[in-house]
């Protein structure tokens, strides 16, 4: 690991000031991804600002009926929070589908949004990677790309965003609050992560020095009809090959409102609003689900070793929509916290 200096911020303003005062600096929260990347020399910050102990760990009601998730609340505290379990069970399920208890105990909500791709070539500093070293080329295109994306890829990068939590968030559409050298602002979750285009080195739309302070969930949590379906190589402690988050509002057997987002398929959590529009007003039938799933993957492009993801995603969408419409949860969710 390259040497660096370290400081612990006392409040948000102090953190922003400290980071701006050091070149090649980075914020560190739980550190579960950043420290790993530093060990691999993928990230080489010269200064770390510890934000893990900033007073941003509360999970609290918002006046508009929503729920504020503090940026430094851990993934564990968020998943097991009583309000999250009751009002946003989709989020509870997605968080618990990811990582391990140890990692969730350390990882923060802000850090979950900031985690970087697990594309093999991004981690392997001996190989070209446009995300790690802009202009060097993409080794995954034409290489071993089983974990790579099928939607929204570019000629520069086919990496995927690795988070489970963010797939549920894409469906729930919170607002991301940030503080930076130019003050505070909010970013719609949809606009937080970006597609690679010709600048894959940028995972998101944060400006230099900005720090996430909270995720503000809207009131609507789709607590009755939801599903988080994660498909992976082993049943636990593995990244998604494909995951699907669904939230439905039903009127009898008719879909009144729908949210649909996919993980493991794109550079960002892949919410498809045109598919949501197609579901609206339709009967919750296998025919509807099949049509919508086909629509979602219509423009998907395989890269060779990940071709299977197109059919896997199509089938996973059908299954998740069915589970959500029927009010079932996926097998393996016995740890929802009801006992």
């Amino acid at each position: 690991m390259h040497p660096f200096t370290y400081s612990r911020a006392t409040d948000v303003a102090d953190a922003v000031r400290d980071k701006a005062g050091h070149v090649a600096s980075a914020y560190i929260g739980g550190g579960t991804n950043l420290i790993d990347l530093m060990k691999m020399n993928v990230e080489q910050p010269a200064h770390l600002v510890n934000v893990a102990k900033l007073p941003l760990s509360k999970i609290e009601d918002l006046p508009d009926g929503g729920l504020r998730l503090g940026a430094t609340a851990t993934n564990s505290d968020t998943a097991w929070n009583e309000d999250v379990k009751k009002r946003y069970p989709l989020l509870n399920q997605a968080i618990l589908a990811g990582a391990s208890p140890q990692l969730r105990n350390a990882a923060t909500n802000g850090g979950n949004l900031m985690q970087r791709t697990r594309c093999y070539y991004f981690y392997d500093v001996a190989t070209p990677c446009n995300k790690r070293e802009p202009g060097s080329g993409c080794s995954a295109i034409g290489g071993y790309n089983r974990v790579c994306g099928i939607l929204g890829t570019s000629e520069a990068c086919i990496a995927t965003h690795p988070s489970d939590m963010c797939v549920a968030l894409a469906a729930l559409a919170p607002t991301v609050r940030v503080s930076g050298p130019n003050g505070e602002r909010t970013i719609a979750f949809e606009d937080f992560h970006r597609l690679p285009g010709d600048q894959p080195e940028f995972d998101n739309t944060l400006a230099e020095g900005e720090l996430i302070t909270s995720l503000d969930l809207p009131e609507k949590g789709f607590a009755k009809n939801f599903a988080y379906l994660k498909l992976r190589d082993r049943h636990s402690y593995a990244f998604a090959l494909v995951s699907v988050a669904v939230g439905l509002e039903m009127d009898g057997d008719t879909i009144k409102e729908a949210r649909l987002a996919l993980g493991g398929v794109a550079h960002k959590p892949w919410r498809d609003q045109s598919a949501e529009d197609l579901l609206k007003g339709q009967p919750a039938t296998a025919e509807t689900f099949g049509r919508v799933a086909a629509h979602v993957v219509a423009n998907a492009v395989g890269q060779g070793s990940n071709d299977f993801k197109i059919e896997l995603a199509r089938r996973a969408i059908v299954r998740a929509l069915k589970q959500a419409a029927e009010g079932q949860q996926q097998a393996g969710d016995m740890y929802l916290g009801g006992q």
Partner: peptide, 29 residues
Amino acid sequence: CDHGQCGACTVLVNGLRINSCLTLAVMHE
């Protein structure tokens, strides 16, 4: 593994289990 993939380094910090390989000592003052 020293990369948070195996759990051999698990310790309890304030009663909570974490991977001690993926955190800096200085963060646990």
